[in-house]
Design a protein around this nucleic acid. Structure first.
Length: 117
RNA sequence: UGGGUCGGCCGGGCGGCCGCGGCUCCACGUGAGUGGGGUCGAGGAAGGUCCGGGCUCCACAGGGCAGGGUGGUGGCCAACAGCCACCCGGGGCAACCCGCGGGAUCAGUGCCACAGAGAACAGACCGCCAGUCCCUCCGGGGACCGGUAAGGGUGAAACGGUGGUGCAAGAGACCACCAGUACGCCGGGCGACCGGCGUAGCUAGGCAAACCCCACCCGGAGCAAGAUCAGACAGGAUGCGUUCGAGGGCGGCCCGCCCGAGCAUCCGGGUAGAUCGCACCAGGCGGCCGGCAACGGUCGUCGCAGAUGGAUGGUCGCCCCUGCGUCAGCAGGACAGAACCCGGCCUACAGGCCGACCCACUCC
RNA sequence: GCCCCGGUAGCCCAACGGCAGAGGCGAUGCUCUCAAACAGCAUUCAGUGUGAGUUCGAAUCUCACCCGGGGCA
């Protein structure tokens, strides 16, 4: 689980990460990562987008919880970036059927690609 | 033993490690906060949003029309379109189940396609019968004018059913029994209604989930309600109006009441942050009492989510259930996630537990 | 939170409660042509989103559910 400081809470933050960030995708999810080296340093912020296409409310919250838990393990990687990082993880319909470890593998691979210099 | 009916309940359990949200305590710190401990943390449907209420605001919650809802009776409930019991009708051998179950003679209007002679105070197509006339191979046949609803055929439905008397042939025309209607009296029930007796005319189609009529109920909005605090900005043009009243409360209309000096359109500009509401109540559980029951009363006991990008997750072990299986093991375990709160209804749901009752067969 | 529409053939869309369903585009076949397009003729494709009810009879009326779309705050 992520603590409150690491959550992306306003729609402007979502918009910046999705519009101007770097992107990488897999069959289960798409990640958008943005950071500004000139901005003040701070804890990285992470947000999640799970649309109704993924499933009903139960499966959506399950996917969201799994992703939120998995993202914790990559926080040091995000803190190493200059400035303040903003990450948005968008879940695709396939994420409803994916196992926890499959989701983790996809997240790790896409994050690696998007945070490489 | 097999089949069936009804009601109630559960919705995997225990433990380890790493995490999340609320409340609270302790330590450190001027403070923002940091660290640690304790405790609580999704459902029977949290769902659909189909009803009802609380709460808040809208003049004081007022009248009429329109509109909407309900629709056997009695009770329960804060209230309801809910629940319980009963009545009536239908289904089932039965337990039991199903029913938007007021009014169509006694307000009025409308509809009943096709078929059929005729479809609503109906109707002579075939048929049956009398009379007159004509023909005749003397069996009868035809035409005209009448009588007739017993029979045929059509239809979802044809103006009581069966048997007899009667008649030229027939007919509730008359009789017996049966079905049904209305009225009166008696008895039972709080009531819907039920039972009995008598009389009447002998019989009156269906559809109101067609318009409608009757009875009863309903003011409007909704926690983004509403309240407090903080913060930002910039006004201008035109029109109407200031007790001769613009506009608003007010939602479809009218009346009435209240507020009332601004309002409407266009151009331009700004904000959308925090706190409260916000979780202790028609509350859960257990015993006793009243009641057929729904439910009510009383005593004891418990404290039970409160987020705001939105908290319950991840992982491991043992047990339980199901399936596969060369009995080592492998795979799976429903429907579904609170957003102001509560009472119902409806819908989804793997598997399991408990209780009551009915029918059939067998044994004692 | 409150409220409103719609669902009929592969597609677009009609249908006073009455023979169960009109039309267009399409598809298929034939004619025309050397071949095709165009044109003409014919045929095919529904059982009306699902389930129940009212009615003699339902796409139509009523109720519940499913799906899709839209509006207001």
């Amino acid at each position: 689980m992520l603590s409150t400081v690491n959550r992306l809470t306003d729609s402007d933050g979502f918009r910046r990460a999705v519009r101007s960030g770097r992107r990488a995708g897999s069959t289960t999810l798409v990640v958008h990562l943005a950071w500004d080296p000139d901005a003040d340093a701070g804890p990285p912020q992470v947000g999640f987008t799970v649309s109704k296409a993924v499933g009903n409310a139960v499966t959506r919250t399950r996917v969201k919880r799994r992703l939120r838990h998995l993202t914790r393990e990559h926080l040091p990687q995000l803190e190493a970036l200059p400035g303040r990082a903003a990450l948005v993880v968008r879940a695709l319909p396939a994420s409803a059927e994916a196992s926890y470890s499959a989701l983790g593998a996809d997240l790790g691979r896409t994050l690696e690609r998007v945070s490489r210099p």
